[in-house]
Design a protein around this nucleic acid. Structure first.
Lengths: 169, 169
DNA sequence: AGGAATGTGTACTTTTTTGTCAAGTTTAGC
DNA sequence: GCTAAACTTGACAAAAAAGTACACATTCCT
């Protein structure tokens, strides 16, 4: 449960695009700014491009730019496209059945308690991270911890309005 | 950013110990129950033992047991001992300095915005997960999602009492 | 046209993580 | 004491992730 290299560096590359208000940013520019190799940045951009997060322009005056404004890109979705979900939904019960569930029987079975845990955690984590946008990371550089706490707290309210009531003083 | 095999299986093994109210559980018992090989369970237990989460008794009537009651073992701490933190605090700025910080200069530098993000996220994630104990996982098997939401919401209150006020209806 | 600067895509090498193997140590029971 | 059942440890093999290499395609500029 750690941030993978692809998530970390991918996010950094996207932030470079977000900082360049308009106009395309080239692979060499991003690579130089982040201290990464050009081919590696190309690989990261390929992932982001296939996910529809960035667009590219080929040719001499080419480069990359975001497909949406930085204000609309939440960290939860972005990190999910760069990495993987907390656990693989498919095949989960087959793989972890254990001796008590030899036939792949799983529903409501005690062995699969953890599936509920991971599902809930996954949903909650992505939803909460989506409260923070790329624009936030750029604008509030100095006061990130404070901003984060506010947004995290707000996510609880947003997610379960009928269950809890939250008041920010 | 996904649950590692060691975290998943380690947690499952610990749950087996927690379910066996008193008395030791042997490696073969855990391995059979979870469908894992005995040597692999031994490796996982070794990690847990070195972290002080479980104790072992050698010899013919030996086995493993928890060092603390299941009610006192939070998921955040447990998963942290089984896996790794979200990011490595040490060497972080050296590795990710990029071209704008060639001399290792980092404090308050824009390139290190992400460090604040990961730190805050790490603290918040572990703290929140610690609201859920091993005993919770065993007792509330069927209604885990509801329990989780309550605990997650409560964590916000607990973490920042002066910032937010939370009311559970 | 042609060359230089750019992105695209596949295959490969290196590193890290997973999981196994095998030899050794401890202890209860006979 | 001896054996069987248990834990301990370090080295090893397999799989996945990270990062590189290289040949190729596209476009601008002259």
């Amino acid at each position: 449960m750690k941030i993978t290299a692809q998530e970390e560096y991918g996010l950094r590359c996207v932030l470079r695009l977000a900082k360049a208000e308009s106009g395309a940013v080239t692979l060499p520019e991003v690579a130089a700014a982040e201290g990464l190799s050009v081919p590696y940045v190309a690989k990261l951009m390929s992932v982001l491009r296939n996910a529809g997060m960035v667009d590219s322009v080929r040719g001499r005056a080419g480069g990359y730019h975001l497909t949406r404004p930085a204000e609309e890109i939440g960290l939860g979705s972005l990190l999910l496209t760069l990495g993987e979900p907390l656990f693989e939904e498919t095949e989960y019960c087959q793989k972890h059945a254990g001796s008590e569930a030899p036939n792949g029987v799983c529903k409501n079975h005690s062995t699969c308690t953890l599936k509920s845990l991971w599902q809930t955690l996954e949903h909650w984590l992505r939803h909460t991270l989506d409260q923070i946008t790329l624009a936030d990371l750029i604008q509030h550089e100095g006061r990130l911890p404070e901003l984060l706490r506010e947004r995290l707290a707000a996510a609880v309210l947003d997610d379960e309005p009928q269950l809890v009531t939250l008041t920010v003083k």
